[in-house]
């Protein structure tokens, strides 16, 4: 089973691209949560929601010309 490890590489690449291009890489999240970890899932979503509220709306979202 290595899909999660491969995915982590892809996320690392994506975050590096975002950092290079001046986009907000902190808006990209990766968490490994198994089907039995209900609490971890809830906590993670709460944390991401909090962070996103702090960050405000995605600055790309207001552009129609992307």
């Amino acid at each position: 089973m290595s899909g999660n490890l491969k995915a982590r590489r892809r996320v690392a690449i994506l975050k590096t691209i975002f950092d290079t291009l001046g986009l907000e890489s902190e808006r990209v999240h990766l968490e490994w949560i198994s089907a039995s970890e209900g609490k971890k899932f809830a906590d993670t979503v709460k944390k991401i929601t909090e962070e996103t509220k702090q960050q405000g709306p995605n600055p790309l979202a207001k552009h129609w010309s992307i």
Binding site: A12, T16, L30
Partner: peptide
Amino acid sequence: RFDYVAGRSLDEPVPLADFREDELHEIGGE
């Protein structure tokens, strides 16, 4: 990020075909 240089060597696997457990802990997961 992967200490890789495209075209440097036939022996280094391309980053997307390779993966390790002990790396990129700062990215998340776990």
